[in-house]
């Protein structure tokens, strides 16, 4: 059975499911008329204005500190604080635009650091989605002895803070001889309780008929997962990938502990070291590295937004 067929079946299926679930709903009319923005009713218009005001205020709260970091990263080392003591609006625009901070960090090997972190982040992401989706699938679609116990164990794995297990985990890395290696950075992060939990929640929403139909067609369970379930839950795959990648991109203490050699240095460790020297800070380097540390994951994450955009014809899978 092809993916397209199953999706089609899902779409036809959903109306029935919904009618069944919302028992108080009268027969559903599949109207195609859509509410247009800025419609005629005055109440609607006021609501829209209110929403825009809210959006603008929130956008300012989000942007202000980011804008300041970015503006500071293009300011010379000598003047970066001049407009902040006390704070003046000029601090939000560099007076003398300079790339010195960026030249400085790349001279210190920040390019290599970004590649390192990308490699660690992307490898972990791929493995984590595979391991997490298979485990989530088992919990969502099967009944088996020991399920509850194993599920509680998954929750436990996500509840115990990493700081409480760092010494035994670090000892394991040492005894495996993994200090200063890629696997020390990647392997411990692959099995992620949050990702398993997330997949379980979304996989449970997929209508049983779809899976049954595929099984009747003779599809193996792995085929059901890869061919039907995962394509239907793209937003979840994307979300899982984003959280795993960001967790790796932002990790700091563990990389510093298990892979301190320069050839394995990752972004957050570099940000913390660059421009710090005893009691002195090179603020231009710090702001430039902080800016890049934010821009790179954004460049990866923002294009994935399309999976979140509410589409009118969306292949809904809620049942």
């Amino acid at each position: 059975m092809s993916t397209n067929q199953s999706r089609h079946q899902l779409q036809t299926r959903e109306t029935t499911v919904i009618t069944a679930d919302n028992t108080d709903t009268r027969p559903v009319a599949l109207s195609t008329t859509r509410h247009q923005p800025g419609a005629t009713r005055p109440g609607e218009r006021m609501l829209a204005t209110l929403l825009y005001v809210l959006l603008i205020v929130m956008a300012l709260i989000v942007l202000a500190p980011l804008e300041w970091i970015m503006a500071s990263s293009f300011t010379t080392r000598e003047t970066v604080w001049a407009n902040v003591l006390p704070f003046s609006w000029r601090a939000l625009l560099p007076e003398e635009f300079t790339l010195a901070g960026y030249r400085g960090i790349f001279a210190e090997g920040f390019g290599r650091v970004i590649l390192n972190t990308m490699f660690v982040g992307l490898t972990t992401t791929v493995l984590s989605v595979i391991v997490g989706s298979t485990a989530g699938f088992a919990f969502a679609r099967f009944d088996f002895p020991g399920k509850t116990v194993l599920w509680v164990l998954i929750l436990l794995s996500l509840m115990v803070p990493y700081e409480a297990t760092v010494i035994p985990a670090y000892t394991l890395v040492n005894n495996l001889g993994w200090t200063n290696s890629w696997q020390a950075l990647i392997v411990p992060a692959v099995a992620n309780g949050t990702v398993i939990f997330l997949f379980r929640q979304f996989f449970a929403e997929i209508p049983q008929d779809l899976i049954d139909a595929a099984r009747l067609d003779g599809a193996a369970w792995s085929r059901v997962l890869v061919g039907i379930v995962l394509p239907l839950t793209k937003p979840v795959v994307v979300t899982s990938a984003i959280i795993v990648f960001l967790a790796q991109w932002n990790s700091f203490f563990w990389p510093m502990l298990v892979a301190p050699a320069e050839e394995y240095r990752v972004v957050q460790v570099a940000v913390s070291i660059l421009g710090v020297q005893q009691e002195l800070r090179y603020w231009d380097l710090l702001f430039a590295s902080a800016t890049i540390a934010a821009v790179v994951p954004l460049a990866l994450v923002l294009p994935l937004q399309k999976y979140y955009v509410s589409s009118i014809t969306g292949s809904g899978l809620k049942g």
Binding site: F142, L156, P188
Partner: peptide, 21 residues
């Protein structure tokens, strides 16, 4: 389906958790 996740969790989470606690 659960095997890879559980093996990884055993070594990197459960044993360290038990030892830590």
């Amino acid at each position: 389906f659960l095997l890879p996740a559980m093996i990884l969790l055993l070594f990197w989470r459960y044993i360290p958790i038990a030892m830590g606690l």
